[in-house]
Design a protein around this nucleic acid. Structure first.
Lengths: 259, 259
DNA sequence: ATCCGGCAAATGTACGGACATTTTTTCCTG
DNA sequence: CAGGAAAAAATGTCCGTACATTTGCCGGAT
């Protein structure tokens, strides 16, 4: 879905002041870049901790912290005595979304940045209405953009349909890179009580592929969320489109009592 | 994945040596227990690193590693100068999941019928190991088939990797079309405490497409579930592959208390 | 050629120290 | 009493050391 370019726009967003990250994060980013560039193909060994320490003039502690970040991102796996091996390509695989609750939705959005491309009121045609499961012809504040991770890589497309009762939230968006529904909660005193989530596999549209730096036509994971108040009113619908096989939507389900 | 037709099958047991976990893991477990027991309610501060070091007679390094585990588990959040605060009890999150997840897995399997095509012991090559996130070379009881709905239409491919400790369950499968893990629970007295679920979009392989009556190469939703006991032992891994855009994986998330 | 044992290499755990940064508390002044 | 500054408290980063555990390689024996 492409939200039509809005006729009127609010002020452009301004990037926050960025300070130098800690050394271990910089080392991790450098190694990640080299992994993604193919310098260390899947299956190959990274340099040892000792060698990396010499290369980056860093202590073993700092190198280990960097490697821990890479492990958490799913790029490498370390084995005692055997070294650290590159286990999977693609940085998006590390953008694992641990969605377990509404609070977790907030956490994911806080760890990524929404880069807004278009904001404007839209009326849903038949296709769009079917896709977002909202009434055909109804009008919503449309917001579309790309969600990016820490190092600026595109994680997914993010498209929003916000109920017009809350359209003034548009004024806050240029200065806000995080999740939108808490803004609505703050600004209007509404409370999201329930999120309905639907996940499916779709072909990646050419327009989406271009802005995500991925190949068009491949498989993409589409995650749609419908945010409702306790009274059942739809406040917002969000569709995140993650390209390719690199992204996995993960959930951990637990039993707490005897079955 | 195509499981080779089984020639012979026996249960093989490989008892794993169980050793004491590292100290930092034990400290984390103890603190988690106290958090879940309500000793530190949501919003309250844990003891400082220094205090925990005194309490557990551990170095700050060890305490910090323990706190890192708790942070990664989403139980606490640390802020420089302010301490470590309990932000979300895992048990309550788990309660949310219980409402809709493992029971939902059973419901889905009950509403469809597993048509088994192949059963046999398989050793995981590198590709398979990566796909199911189990050790390469490890051996599992492989079961593969198609899950069909009421009218017999193919819903998805269903592939299982069952720990060889439970391989005798194979004897029950010919007369059993429903979910497999409750069979294991009944037959062996094991209890599934946790299911880790990963959903991604993949291209539909030609072999899978043929048995599902779908076009090869299109987008498919791959849902992988790893079933674990409370001790963390992997009992079973399941991959369901749903063709095309027809299938949507739906979840409803609710807030149980005020934000 | 194969197998086994020993040793070196490589990561994992855990101790210690120091300084930086942020938050909270305390103290002082108007 | 209120506000601001300074000090103390608390976590974050980064250095170092030592030992434990596991893996891989090499050489010798069969």
């Amino acid at each position: 879905m492409r939200v039509p370019r809005a006729v009127s726009r609010t002020a452009e967003s301004q990037p926050a002041a960025v300070e130098a990250p800690p050394r271990y994060r910089r080392i991790a980013a450098q190694l990640k870049e080299e992994i993604l560039a193919g310098l260390y193909p899947v299956g190959s060994l990274l340099p040892t901790e000792a060698a990396l320490g010499r290369r980056f003039a860093a202590s073993r502690h700092t190198v280990r912290e960097a490697l821990r970040l890479l492990r958490e991102e799913g790029l490498v796996a370390s084995r005692r005595g055997a070294g650290t091996r590159v286990v999977s390509p693609g940085e998006e695989e590390g953008a694992v979304q641990q969605v377990m609750s509404i609070n977790d939705l907030l956490a994911f959005a806080r760890e990524s940045r929404l880069e807004i491309e278009a904001v404007g009121v839209v009326a849903l045609d038949a296709d769009a209405a079917r896709r977002v499961e909202l009434p055909e012809g109804s009008r919503w504040l449309g917001v579309s953009g790309v969600r990016r991770g820490r190092e600026g890589a595109a994680l997914c497309r993010a498209d929003y349909w916000i109920h017009l009762d809350y359209a003034a939230v548009a004024r806050l968006l240029p200065r806000h890179a995080g999740p939108i529904f808490p803004l609505i909660e703050d600004l209007y005193g509404e409370r999201i009580a329930e999120v309905e989530q639907a996940i499916r596999a779709v072909p990646l549209a050419a327009a989406d592929a271009a802005s995500l730096g991925a190949a068009a036509g491949g498989a993409a994971l589409e995650v749609r969320r419908t945010y409702r108040t306790a009274a059942g009113k739809v406040v917002q619908v969000t569709i995140n489109t993650h390209p390719g096989e690199r992204f996995a939507h993960r959930t951990t389900l637990r039993r707490l009592r005897p079955a």
